Amino acid sequence: MTDMLKLNMLVLSQLTHLFLQPMLERKRGRILNVGSVVAYFSGAPNWSAYVASKHYVLALSKGLARELKGTGVMATVVSPGATGTDFVRTADATHMRAYRAPGGLSVEKIAAAAYRACQNGKVAVIPGAFNKILAFLGKPHPRAVAFEVFAVLSQKTEQP
């Protein structure tokens, strides 16, 4: 867990700090951070630290985007949902409903959406209709509802 928290928060912050100053000096540049649709939820059973770390990515990216306004440097955060990557295996999420649902976007589609959003100066992008619905369910409704929606999605299912 400590390695995941370091990667998602500390390394992200350190890399941003390292590359931001030269971008500001050039008066142009783009920062693209990888968040997650789970950042729009208040938490999840068995995923609390991961969700909290993605809250950090979302908050840092949005705050940075505002701070950089007018500098020529822009920050964007992409918040993909369940994607067929090594993360699913590494995080032991192969049996979660969210990762077994049809219609997940390919890595290529997520990357293309993130790149377009970054180049167009968008602060945040959530690729895919299903992911937008999930973010909607997590964001404007009472946190208790969002918590339960994510709890259902994070439940383990039978072996495929």
Score class of each variant (00 low, 15 high):
Thr2Ile: 12
Asp3Trp: 06
Met4Trp: 05
Leu5Cys: 12
Lys6Glu: 14
Met9Cys: 15
Leu10Trp: 09
Val11Ala: 15
Leu15Asn: 06
Leu15Ile: 06
Thr16Asp: 04
Leu20Arg: 03
Pro22Trp: 07
Pro22Ala: 10
Leu24Asn: 06
Arg26Ala: 15
Arg28Phe: 01
Arg30Asn: 05
Tyr40Val: 08
Phe41Thr: 00
Gly43Cys: 04
Ala44His: 02
Ser48Thr: 11
Val51Leu: 10
Tyr56Ala: 13
Val57Met: 12
Ala59Glu: 10
Arg66Asn: 13
Arg66Ser: 12
Glu67Asn: 10
Leu68Glu: 06
Leu68Ser: 09
Lys69Glu: 15
Gly70Arg: 05
Thr71Cys: 05
Gly72His: 09
Gly72Pro: 01
Ala75Pro: 05
Thr76Phe: 03
Thr76Pro: 01
Val78Arg: 02
Gly81Ile: 01
Thr83Tyr: 05
Gly84Gln: 12
Thr85Glu: 07
Thr85Gly: 05
Thr85Tyr: 03
Thr85Ile: 00
Ala91Glu: 12
Ala101Asn: 08
Pro102His: 08
Pro102Trp: 01
Gly103Val: 00
Gly103Lys: 00
Leu105Ala: 10
Ser106Asn: 07
Glu108Tyr: 01
Lys109Glu: 15
Lys109Pro: 02
Ala111Gln: 07
Ala112Gln: 14
Ala113Val: 04
Tyr115Cys: 12
Tyr115Asn: 12
Cys118Ser: 15
Cys118Val: 04
Asn120Thr: 11
Gly121Asn: 09
Lys122Pro: 06
Ala124Cys: 11
Ile126Val: 15
Pro127Asp: 05
Lys132Trp: 08
Leu134Trp: 03
Leu134Arg: 04
Ala135Gly: 15
Ala135Gln: 07
Phe136Gly: 15
Leu137Glu: 14
Lys139Met: 10
Ala144Pro: 01
Val145Ala: 12
Val152Phe: 07
Val152Trp: 07
Leu153Val: 09
Leu153Asp: 11
Ser154Lys: 00
